[in-house]
């Protein structure tokens, strides 16, 4: 008996998951970079001063600009590597969500004050 081809099944994905995984992991990395930079800038004067890209906004300008660059560069790299591949999305999504969760914690001032 011929089994239906998985590609013809209505529930078979038409696209590989690599591109989505790249976007999700990069978003996690970008969020985490922002949280780490904000925390580092809060604790170390040298880093805080080096993050002043636009004086009226202060270190926030460097924290966010650097994090956005890290996010976009990592996204481009992952997209380039995984675009047409099927990757282990469960593990990647767990890492990305873990990074996002840590980021939310690291931006909460009472937690930053613990360091």
């Amino acid at each position: 008996m011929n089994m239906p081809n998985s590609a013809a099944s209505p529930n078979a994905p038409a696209l590989t998951n690599g591109s989505g995984a790249a976007a999700i992991l990069a978003a996690g990395i970008g969020s985490f970079a922002l949280a780490v930079l904000a925390c580092a800038g809060d604790k170390l004067a040298a880093i805080r001063n080096s993050l002043i890209f636009y004086k009226p906004t202060g270190p926030l300008s460097g924290v966010t600009t650097s994090a956005i660059l890290i996010w976009l560069v990592s996204w481009v790299i992952f997209e380039w590597r995984w675009r047409n591949k099927t990757v282990g999305i469960g593990r990647i999504a767990a890492i990305a969500l873990g990074l996002l969760g840590l980021s939310l914690l690291l931006t909460f001032p009472p937690i930053v004050d613990l360091f």
Binding site: I24, A26, A27, L34, L100, S103, P109
Partner: peptide
């Protein structure tokens, strides 16, 4: 101190959501 950083997760996340 919380708002100025946490707010940036919104555009990063929704940009990814829209792209996907």
């Amino acid at each position: 101190e919380w708002k100025e950083h946490v707010a940036w997760f919104a555009p990063i996340s929704i940009t990814m959501v829209a792209f996907v």
